[in-house]
Design a protein around this nucleic acid. Sequence first.
RNA 1: GCUGGUGUGGCUCAAUGGCAGAGCAGCACAUUCGUAACGUGCAGGUUGGAGGUUCGAUUCCUCUCACCAGCUCCA
Length: 581
Amino acid sequence: MIKEKLNFEDEQTKLKYRHTSSHVMAQAIKHIWPEAKLAIGPAIENGFYYDIDLDYHITEEDFPKIQKEMKKIISAAYPLECFTLERDEALSYMEEENEPYKVELIKDLPEDAVISFYRQGDFTDLCAGPHLDNTNQIKAIKIMSVAGAYWRGNEKNKMLQRLYGISFPTVEELDDYLEKLEEAKRRDHRKIGKEMDLFLIREEGPGFPFFMPKGMIIRNHLEEFWRKEHEKRGYSEIKTPLILSEELWKTSGHYEHYKDNMYFTKIDDMDYAVKPMNCPGAMLTYKRKLYSYRDFPMRIGELGQVHRHELSGALHGLMRVRTFTQDDAHIFCLPEQMREEILGVYNFIDYVYKVFGFKYHIELSTRPENSMGSEAEWDMAENALKDAMESAGADYVINEGDGAFYGPKLDFHLEDSIGRTWQCGTIQLDFQMPQRFDLTYTGMDGEKHRPIMIHRVIFGSIERFIGILTEHTAGKFPLWLAPVQVRLLTVTEKFNDYAKTVEASLKEQGIRAESDLRNEKIGYKLREARNERVNYLGVIGERETDNKTLTVRSSKEGELGEMSLEDFRDRLLNEIVKKEL
RNA sequence: GCUGGUGUGGCUCAAUGGCAGAGCAGCACAUUCGUAACGUGCAGGUUGGAGGUUCGAUUCCUCUCACCAGCUCCA
């Protein structure tokens, strides 16, 4: 047999490899626990899994045993044989094998379907394939974790045990992958946030983060950047209340679609709700006066804090919280301005992500079930978004049925430095709010018309964005955002006076400098400052005091040597203005 | 919310059905030092919370809260 060389760059080969890996794991499980019932076992983006129904609870202690069995199966070099059965034959075969989940899967296939199976040694699985030719092609495989997962993802169904695994064509690649996971752990924003004292989440307020002084510096500078860029692009800014009457949320449709995620309160026996979104408030500001077509496009931004009751199990550091600040904006425009406005937002988002060095991809989410509005409106909105993306030459994938209940959207997914993606920006077209709130403007014809509303965010949530940025930079924030830009370290207390004058002169330029004047050894002070990820360290001893210089170390570039105070200051100011990572 | 796991000083982690311990951080003293931890001493705890079993619970049981992983959901 000629051995086919495996090309893991090829997505199909990778899936085949992982899919066969999952069959090997399932076979091993059946060897150890013959009573285990198999559900599904696909290849996924990062590896593969198999869902099994087994009374015995598999724990990490069982992994070595299963892996040993997997090794045996691999070295047994079973060829994978595909065969097909008619639907009835397939059904009775799986019934015979006592695999109820497979039976259910077959029953859902069309009447005339020809059903394929793959066999490797004593193990046969219902499977569409494709697969590797032989189990011995798997060179490096590891079980990663076990977790619960509902049969068919429905919480009304039985919870099965899902075993996750990963496999690679070489042991080196597996090791690299495991190292990448370790790196992700080191970069976890919850860990770095604690170490750098950026934010805090307490038992007293699950999902409600506290921002500490250093976290506030990052946050405030992000907001300052946001305001400046919006001003440049013709946006104005508003702030709407956190609490508004329950009636308003019924008008907007949020009550009906979103009430399980909302917090309610009573004031003087009247019913109120804490806002989960900013749009209804913005609608009310629109309604304060009359508009002409000449007023459009009208771009109104709001850094709006919203509260949403997220499920307790979904909370995750700053990434998933119960209160967060959306960098929201609502754009009101004429139908003929719609495409250009969407393009403008797209270019804006693209610019902002580039400042931080993020790669991203775009998804177009279309009409979900249980949505408001007519088919025609949705088609028009979806087409407008598509047109804009096509004229921008931007690539996107379609995410069927994942739109908001009031309109379709373009979602921007950021990729961080280790390849994970996070949804941040969105552009949503909304034909519902303007109708529900009866928004109008006077057209050239003197008649009343309905404005188009675009709803968008760039950071998405300031909190999440800070979380992503923390992991992306591993806590080494770009200088313009860094909580501590410079720390001056004196070799002994004799040089404290000179350090103080240096600190004062840097501060005068708006540079965030501080001095470590403690009676500690220089090595100790350096170690601490490096652990705190301070961007620039300036060592001050006898030489520097005499020469009016500093010996500078950068967290990015290492030792920079002795430098005059003026040169150091100019270097910092340039780097701050450039805003580059 | 569901399944499983975890919860011990500010942080990282030991220990045991029988007096709860270490390192780091903190404080005091000493030291005045040149690129990743100087030394000595002191202080710090109702072992997440509430019940229960027991002569005795941090340990065993029940409930509850929070966190972690995954599912579901999402900015």
